[in-house]
Write a protein that binds this DNA or RNA. Structure first.
Length: 303
RNA sequence: ACGAUCAUCGCCCACU
């Protein structure tokens, strides 16, 4: 049974609701894990009615089932219903509370989110994170900042979210200051820093940060390609590309954007629809209508 | 027997 349950859950995660249901039906004695997995498969993929039916039909509703249902409503924009579910949960845990906070925060009801957050009997890292992200997304940087400093755990993700919110305003002074104030940083933080500099065309600073980084990963290198690309420095971009220890689709696509060259495109080991769009854009820019149409024909997925 | 599988955030890099 438990193997089947895992299957249901993974089908659900990949959006394959039909298969999830088939597996579920093949179980002679589904337990509450099976039911919950089925429920979340529906919930995650927008099948609200099916989710409701599963919820009503299940023999035993655990706090997980309630949580799924809450998330299902929240995801589909039914805040009121989500709230109704929340109010009826027999025994809330942190996750249920977080779910409710998330529901409000994501719908832009940051005040309500805050109220729920304030009423929480206990909070975990996620609770704080959701609030920080919520404030940051709504541009209330002062509150986001307060949240981060009040948070008892040192949480990289919160710090990074706050940093990104500053960076988005284009005020690199504030962004840098918040970066410097961080007590903990991880790769993502560093990557975000060079990315922010690059985007705001502080190319020298970006490269300095890149050099200073304790470790690097593909994303860091990719940003360096883009750095040279924004500087119109094709040779530099190529040099980075050759120098980097490993490459992914994004590396290739970045190089493609820098060079607009179809030879790069042909050499690519993998492509994605973004790659195709990038190539298409480059070809159109050069006015090669025939080529563009040819590309369009060959495109695996048109958007 | 216990455990393991299910719900909430998941933050950084490519086209538009």
């Amino acid at each position: 049974v438990h193997k089947a349950n895992v299957l249901i859950a993974s089908y659900g995660r990949s959006g394959n609701v039909e298969n999830a249901k088939i597996v579920f039906d093949s179980i002679s004695q589904p337990d509450h894990y099976s039911w919950n997995s089925l429920l979340t498969s529906y919930a995650r993929n927008g099948h609200l009615d099916a989710a409701k039916a599963a919820f009503d039909g299940m023999p035993l509703r655990t706090v997980v089932s309630w949580g799924s249902m809450l998330a299902a409503f929240a995801w589909n924009g039914h805040l009121k219903q989500a709230r109704a579910v929340f109010d009826r949960i027999p025994s809330c845990n942190v996750i249920s509370w977080n779910g409710m906070v998330t529901a409000y925060a994501r719908s832009g009801c940051i005040e309500e989110a805050r109220q729920v957050f304030n009423g929480m009997p206990e909070r975990d890292v996620l609770s704080w994170n959701i609030m920080v992200q919520g404030y940051a997304e709504n541009g209330v940087l002062r509150e986001a900042e307060k949240m981060v400093s009040r948070c008892p755990m040192h949480n990289v993700m919160s710090w990074t979210c706050l940093f990104l919110a500053y960076a988005e305003t284009g005020n690199m002074k504030d962004a840098k200051a918040s970066f410097d104030r961080m007590l903990v940083r991880d790769l993502v933080t560093w990557n975000a820093m060079i990315q922010a500099y690059t985007q705001n065309e502080y190319l020298v600073e970006a490269e300095q940060v890149f050099r200073k980084m304790p470790t690097r990963e593909v994303a860091s290198w990719n940003t360096m390609i883009q750095l040279f690309s924004t500087a119109n420095h094709l040779e530099g971009a190529k040099a980075v590309f050759d120098e980097m220890p490993e490459r992914n689709v994004i590396s290739w696509t970045s190089l493609l954007c820098a060079s607009s060259s179809s030879t790069v495109f042909e050499r690519m080991p993998q492509t994605s629809w973004i790659t195709w769009n990038a190539m298409l854009a480059a070809v159109c820019q050069d006015g090669h209508i025939e080529k563009a149409l040819g590309l369009l024909d060959k495109m695996p997925l048109k958007t």
